[in-house]
Every structure is written in structure tokens, then in C-alpha cells.
Nucleic acid binder design. Structure first.
Length: 588
RNA sequence: GUGGGCGUAGCGUAGCUGGAUAACGCAUCAGACUCCGACUCUGAAGACCACCGGUUCGAAUCCGGUCGUCCACACCA
């Protein structure tokens, strides 16, 4: 289905043409003066220059061409040259009925579906998820769903930090604590135990301890570096330990991401890139891209058009070890081999932008990735506390993601119990659903690239532009529909009639904007666009709801029409929040 | 120092490729409803869109400059 506004635009363009002007001036936007009209076209003012005519004369000429167009209730040319448009109720109702009866609300899939690898999540193995991981997961998940909805072929990869010094540190600390473990016995040749010699909570405590020690004690750090090197060379016992660390961590990570309704198709990590590094480095040398600088191996990525100095991309440290430039490049190798993506998009902290500029340039320059492949950096801003500074716990530490979720769920549960309309078990379940929506909506309704203030009390409020407000609107419609069905009625074969009030028409007009909102959000990779849409739609629903008695309406056809509108609105909202990555409960 | 982001009512934000009275929410004040499930709805008040200049018939939006603020600037990821 063509977007509603495009249908309008077609008419306007045809009118420009018929009046003797270029149809390029016929673009239509939603009115910024709702008190005057529903849609507007400003093209006459732009056309005035080319045709050396007064804008108002052009606008008038165009409007005359539209006098018998069935789509418009009114078309008027207004000084200095605006075209103010109002559509007929029939046109909107027809469009809404088509939406209701078409798969996916008639949203047209992307004309050229892309194969996309979406890199988001980025947790570190053996470290608990903290609030810094929230945005990548939440934004990435939504972008994945949006792109899929538009017909793109998306593979989500978590890209774990599971390689390098951090692993050496853990092994070293384990060795200190439990030297008797067979993993440290070089002469041991048997099978290693299936059971990991630690739990997730031990693991989460071991890493920071080890990290602290290595900063203070050079000898300790030396050991960790050695362990890292031996691990990377494939020492049997260490490899077995790494497997344990990964298993224990991944199990825990999955649990946490499940709770966020965030999932990944691939659980790959830096380690999976490691096998590709030696050949990659050799090829870069052989092709003359990589050279030695201060003992390190680097590739120049500066370009003439740069307004600042872009440092070279470092491939190997002076001690010969790989670093994150290296693994990110090598990761692109297997992604290229296995998927031949048209696009690889990274949802990462915007502070890493320079690093990705270097990696992207280096990948293109050295031919790891073909020119045709789009490498996209989706940098997100920092999550700040109410004081405007990075979000911390009360005592200034880094807050665990699970603690944050617990805290918000508890607050929500208390709120729900206060109303006292459901039993404890359901209250708890509902609280979890609403709390997640509150957090995700609070994040996604902001532009990804901007920093934002994480204000729990505002996010969990039922009022204003919040997740709970959206959910509440859905629940309210569900409740009406349920009542209707309980009375022995059916929701099949309902038709939306020509709107009989301003609020009904506004609601329908709002619904027609769905396609523009999703496709815009998907192509720009900006979920906040979709949030703005559902907020506006929710407002229209509540406005309509407030003015209209639905179940008490005596005219059967009207009542059915109202229900059809609400049902469509509900489905559109549910589809939208699914694309944002959360859901609505049955009751609130 | 170099480069980049940001600066819109008390607070939090929206303003897409420049267009008609700068939009929304919270908080404040005043009403309506209290019925289809804690709500919702209507209205009031609140902004020299950081500052200065330029382009244009027309700038929050584009271009320069100033100030403030945050961030990044090869051997940690």
C-alpha cells in the first residue's frame, strides 16, 4: 500500500503539472498548523522563483486543478502561497479499512532488501552486565526488529569480549587460589572435568580482584600477560578453563538478556576472530599496507580531506600482541566469508567513534571488506543520572544491570499493589512487564546519539510521554474489546465508517502515519521516530475515548465502527511496541 | 592544543531536506469527567530557540565567529 500522504502528494503533483508547473514542487507535509488544515504544500513559494510569478498565483492555479478531486474536502491557497489541504472522511476511512485488512498494515517492504550484520550487546565475559550495556542492547534489539519488519535480512551478533588480557587475568587469579587444579598441571594428559571449578558469582568477583592486583603489582601483571600468551598459543589446560569460563558466563548472560527481551542470532566473540589474525597480518604486510612504527605494526588510514589528524590503525602492538583494532578487523573477515553482508552496523558507545573510523577505513583500504559494503557506526550517548553525570549507584559505583531492573520492578510492583486490583502473583508479573517497557521507552524515545537523563520516577509514571502511558492506552482498549466480546459479540467483520467527529478523524489520520513512521525509523535507524508516532497515536486515542461513548452507543453500525477503529489502533500500537522490544500486559 | 557533539520555558525533551502564532510532557494554576479498570480530557501561565554576524522574500533549522559544556585524540577494550 502506498502511504496515505503519498496518495495526497500524487494528487498535488498532478495538479502542479496540469497547471503548467514542474511536479517536483508538489511535495506535501503534515500541517504544522493543525488549526488551519491537515496537510500542506509549500511548493508554490519555491516555484515562484523559477516561473517569475507570485507564489499566491501559482498556489491558486494549482488549487483550481483540484476542485473536483474526490480526495479533498477543501483545498485553499493562502498568502503568501501556502496550499492548505483537508482530506475527506471517506478517504481516511477507506485507507484505514485497507490497513486493517492487509498483512502488516499494508506497509511496503524495502525495495532492495539488504543483508545486514548488526553488532550490538558487546558484553564482557566474566563480568556482570552493568548499566553501560543497557543502551546497546535496547537500541540494537529495536533496530534489528525494525529492519526485519521492513524485509531486510538481519543477523544479530553479540560480539562478546572473550579474549585477551582479561582471560589471562582470570586464569592467573585462579592459579593463585587453586593451584592444585589439574588445569595448571602441564603433565596432565587426561580429560578435564565437565564441571567448572567456579560459579558465576565467584567468577564475577575474581575478575575485578585480578584486575586490581595487576595494576598494583607488576609481577602479577607479568604473569597474567604470560598466561594470556599461553592461552592464545593454545595451552591445553588454559583452553579448557576458557571453555568453562565461557559456558558459565554465557549461561548467565543469556538469562540477563532474556529478561530484557533481547536476543542474538550469533554468540560470537573476539576469540572467534583470532584464527584469522595471522593470515590477515601477513597479507597486510605483503600488500604493503602495514608497516612498522615505533615497534608496532600499523596501517595508515588518514585521508586528504580530513580536517584533523586520524592516527594510523594499529594492527599489532610492539610486543606482537593483537588489540581491539585487530580483532574488529579480523571479525569482519569471517563476517564477510560467511554472510557477504551489504551492511555491517555497530551499536556502540559514541565515544568509540574514532576507533571505528580507523577500522572501517582500514578494512576498505586493505580489501577485507568490498567498497560496496556499508560499514555503519551507530554511536549512542551516555546514560546520565538526574545530576547530569554518568549514572552511578548511590555510593558512586557502577550499577549492575540486574540490580537496576530489580529496583525498578519493585517500585512498579509497589505502585500496582497500591491500586490493589490484582493478586500478588499477577502484580509481580505485570510489574516486570511494565517496568521493562518503562526502561526501554525511556531510552528509545530519545535520539540514540544524544546523552539522556535516566530518571526512574519519570519513566515509571503513567502520565506523559512514557512507556506505561502507552501500555495503559493499549490495556484500556483491550478492556473495552473484552467487555464487548463477553457480551456475546464478535470482533469479526467490523468496518470503519466515515468519521463522525473531529476526534475520530484525527485518530484515523494518525493511524495512516504508521507506515511513514516505521519505514523512517528503520531506514534512519532511529527508534525514537516510532516512539514519537505511538505517543501521538496514544494521545489521539485517549482524546477520542474521552469524547466518545463506545459500548453505550446505540447505533449498532457506529458502535462497530468505533470498535473497528480502536481494534486497529490497538493492533498498530502492539505492533509498534513489539518493534521497540517490549509488550503490553493484559491488565494494569 | 587539535577535532567532534551539545546549548530550545523551572526541569525533561521534539522540531525531517529553511516556511504561516517554536511543539510535547512533568511541575504550577483553573476547570471537566470520575463513566468503557488507578486514568483521561480542556484551558491558563511559562522561551529574544546560548551570543554576534551572514545567506534568503523567510532561519531554531544553512554558513562563519564568540562563549559555555561534554567527549575523543595508536601499544586498555
Amino acid at each position: 500500500m502506498k502511504e496515505f500522504i503519498k496518495l495526497i502528494e500524487d494528487e498535488i503533483k498532478a495538479a502542479f503539472k496540469a497547471a503548467g508547473f514542474d511536479e517536483k514542487y508538489g511535495s506535501v507535509t503534515v500541517s504544522n498548523r493543525p488549526d488551519l488544515c491537515e496537510f500542506q504544500c509549500n511548493g508554490a513559494m519555491a516555484a515562484a522563483k523559477e516561473y517569475h510569478k507570485k507564489p499566491i498565483d501559482i498556489a491558486t492555479a494549482v488549487s483550481e486543478q483540484l476542485s473536483d478531486c474526490s480526495m479533498f474536502e477543501s483545498v485553499s491557497a493562502v498568502m503568501p502561497g501556502f496550499l492548505n489541504l483537508n482530506v475527506t472522511g471517506e478517504a481516511v476511512a477507506t485507507y484505514a479499512n485497507n490497513m486493517a485488512n492487509t498483512e502488516g498494515f499494508g506497509v511496503e517492504k524495502a525495495g532492495n532488501p539488504r543483508t545486514v550484520i548488526l553488532d550490538y550487546g558487546g558484553p564482557n565475559v566474566a563480568k556482570p552486565l552493568h548499566v553501560g550495556h543497557l543502551r546497546s542492547a535496547v537500541i540494537g534489539e529495536s533496530i534489528k526488529r525494525l529492519l526485519r519488519f521492513m524485509g531486510h535480512n538481519v543477523t544479530g551478533d553479540i560480539h562478546m569480549g572473550d579474549w585477551g588480557l582479561q582471560m589471562g587475568l582470570i586464569i592467573t587469579e585462579l592459579n593463585e587460589r587453586k593451584p592444585e587444579l589439574v588445569y595448571f598441571d602441564d603433565s596432565y594428559e587426561g580429560d578435564y572435568p565437565k564441571e567448572a571449578p567456579f560459579t558465576i558469582s565467584e567468577l564475577e568477583e575474581i575478575y575485578p580482584t585480578a584486575s586490581g592486583k595487576s595494576k598494583e603489582d607488576p609481577a602479577y601483571k607479568e604473569k597474567a600477560l604470560l598466561a594470556t600468551a599461553e592461552l592464545q598459543k593454545g595451552r591445553r589446560g588454559y583452553t579448557a578453563l576458557l571453555e568453562h569460563i565461557l559456558n558459565v558466563s554465557v549461561t548467565d548472560l543469556k538469562k540477563n538478556y532474556d529478561r530484557l527481551s533481547v536476543s542474538f542470532d550469533l554468540w560470537k566473540g573476539e576469540r572467534d576472530a583470532d584464527p584469522f589474525i595471522p593470515d590477515m597480518v601477513e597479507k597486510m604486510k605483503a600488500d604493503g599496507f602495514a608497516y612498522e612504527s615505533d615497534g608496532a605494526l600499523v596501517v595508515d588510514v588518514a585521508e586528504e580531506s580530513d580536517t584533523k589528524e586520524i592516527p594510523p590503525c594499529m594492527i599489532l602492538k610492539s610486543d606482537g600482541a593483537a588489540l581491539y583494532d585487530t580483532t574488529d578487523l579480523a571479525t569482519l573477515i569471517w563476517r564477510q566469508n560467511d554472510y557477504h553482508p551489504d551492511q555491517v552496523a555497530y551499536v556502540v558507545d559514541k565515544r568509540q567513534e574514532l576507533h571505528f573510523v580507523q577500522v572501517f577505513r582500514c578494512a576498505k583500504k586493505t580489501g577485507i571488506v568490498p567498497e560496496s559494503c556499508d560499514l555503519k557506526f551507530i554511536g549512542f550517548g551516555t546514560m546520565n543520572g538526574k545530576d547530569g553525570k554518568p549514572f552511578k549507584t548511590r555510593d558512586g559505583g557502577v550499577m549492575r544491570l540486574s540490580s537496576l531492573l530489580d529496583e525498578i520492578s519493585e517500585k512498579m510492583e509497589a505502585k500496582i499493589k497500591e491500586a490493589g486490583t490484582m493478586d500478588d502473583e499477577e502484580a509481580k508479573k505485570t510489574a516486570d512487564i511494565v517496568a521493562l517497557a518503562a526502561i526501554k521507552y525511556g531510552d528509545l524515545s530519545n535520539q540514540p546519539s544524544k546523552d539522556y537523563i535516566f530518571d526512574v520516577d519519570r519513566f515509571i509514571s503513567f502520565e506523559g510521554n512514557t512507556g506505561p502511558y502507552i501500555l495503559y492506552t493499549i490495556v484500556r482498549i483491550k478492556s473495552i474489546i473484552n467487555k464487548y466480546i463477553e457480551a456475546g459479540n464478535s470482533m469479526d467483520d467490523l468496518t470503519i465508517l466515515t468519521p463522525d467527529s473531529d476526534s475520530a478523524k484525527s485518530l484515523l489520520l494518525s493511524l495512516t502515519k504508521f507506515e511513514g513512521a516505521v519505514s523512517g525509523a528503520a531506514e534512519e535507524m532511529l527508534p525514537n521516530r516510532l516512539c514519537a508516532f505511538i505517543y501521538e497515536l496514544s494521545n489521539e486515542i485517549n482524546h477520542f475515548y474521552h469524547e466518545t461513548r463506545i459500548l453505550a452507543e446505540e447505533d449498532e453500525a457506529k458502535k462497530k465502527s468505533y470498535l473497528a477503529m480502536l481494534d486497529l489502533a490497538k493492533r498498530v500500537l502492539e505492533q509498534s511496541i513489539d518493534l521497540l522490544g517490549f509488550e503490553a500486559p493484559e491488565h494494569m
